[in-house]
Design a protein around this nucleic acid. Structure first.
Ligand SMILES: [Mn+2]
Ligand SMILES: [Mn+2]
Ligand SMILES: [Mn+2]
Ligand SMILES: [Mn+2]
Lengths: 216, 216
DNA sequence: TTAATTTGTTAGAACAGTCTAACTTTTTAA
DNA sequence: TTAAAAAGTTAGACTGTTCTAACAAATTAA
């Protein structure tokens, strides 16, 4: 079994290596708020556990075993988030921090009951896919609001971040998963976008925000 | 804030010092499955945090601050157990181990939602009282089945243990909180008791089991 | 009331996880 | 293509938690 600390490293390695298949020590250190030598010694440990493969001065990659573990942690995190929203009626902006803790609870029963109560859900409250119990995850590629063609209407499918401050911002703008929005105008100067929302209101988002909203 | 390890020490000190107000190093060591010197150094740490008061070779006692912290942990544990039974429909025999983990989750919202969903409950699934959010707990003294007068009928109010093996045994005997039982006979030789149960069945319990069942 | 036993303490080591300082390798830019 | 900057590594120290070995105090039994 992995310690809480090891689980957090594994999860971060998975997240940061999504694009290229590998992460660098410096990136991991920044993400986890530790110094590089800490990452270094943890990589030795995880390599000896066959969770990552890594050669000095080269990028870090998860092994098959490591990927399995990562997906299992992500599954627990996302199931927990959805449970907190659907069953416990907490806001989508407040569940991430609690799920960071619940994901480390060691109990098959706890998670299988969540899964049942939620009727084997496929997406978390932020639109992220929930890996199934075998670690299968279907990642469909989505368009970001920052690249949606002007004049088109699309449905908000996911948000690329679940930090409270970002979600508070979306709450303030009145945007939620599932909402239909029409892209009225994109400013060429700064990439900010004006949306027509079902609420009739016009909503202005900066590029920084728009690029974190995925539509279908 | 206390670490998980510190919280577990505090909870055990509270439990073991219930009767006399103090615990001994040897008792704590046994309960926590550590050696005496480990307890010793943790007591120094907790004393410096003003959580316990303790002088070398004397018993260990919680300070007022320590008692508050203990009751807060116990509240979280028991709320979690009840939540797991009532909301998540797990069995009373399987919730203790999960609650051992959930009690360390740091989130007021998580626990206040549980409290609301359960309608501010007073007892956990094993009949133990749940301290309120100010740390008030009402401990009523109860009679053990091992000292109930022959011929009398009483209601099972609580069980003095929540280990899976013990509760599995009660499940097998068909006993639950709230059940009415009549004490038919107590064997003078070994203290075992025969009960008349609402299910019509006669149930035989050893003294060891009977003394852990509290009735009103 | 002395001796044996039990209980508690100190000293010192170990492991997980982190850090700083110093050094090496790789990458980037002049 | 060399020099500066960035990234990675090693060594060594520190904290939290635990252990074993050795010793001291308190309790119990002879
Ligand atoms: Mn999250
Ligand atoms: Mn999420
Ligand atoms: Mn319990
Ligand atoms: Mn209980």
């Amino acid at each position: 079994m992995d310690s809480l600390t090891e689980e957090n490293y594994i999860k971060s390695i998975y997240a940061l290596s999504q694009a290229t298949g590998e992460v660098f020590v410096s990136e991991l250190a920044k993400k986890l708020n530790v110094k590089q030598p800490s990452v270094n010694s943890m990589m030795k440990r995880l390599a000896s556990k066959k969770v990552v493969s890594y050669a000095p001065y080269k990028g870090i990659r998860l092994t098959e075993k490591g990927k399995k573990e990562a997906l299992s942690i992500i599954r627990r995190h996302r199931l927990a988030e959805l449970f907190l929203v659907k069953v416990m009626e907490l806001g989508w902006e407040e569940v991430h921090d609690i799920a960071e803790q619940l994901e480390h609870v060691d109990s098959k029963r706890f998670y299988s009951r969540m899964d049942e109560m939620l009727n084997f859900p496929k997406f978390d409250p932020h639109g992220e896919p929930i890996p199934d119990s075998n670690g299968k995850i279907h990642t469909q590629k989505r368009t970001s609001l920052s690249e949606l063609v002007e004049g088109l209407t699309a449905i908000i499918a996911a948000v690329g971040e679940d930090e409270k401050s970002f979600l508070d911002h979306l709450n303030a703008k009145g945007l939620q998963i599932g909402d239909a929005v029409t892209l009225k105008k994109r400013e060429p100067f700064d990439g900010s976008v004006t949306l027509q929302h079902k609420s009739k209101k016009e909503i202005l988002l900066t590029h920084q925000v728009a690029e974190r909203i995925w539509v279908e």
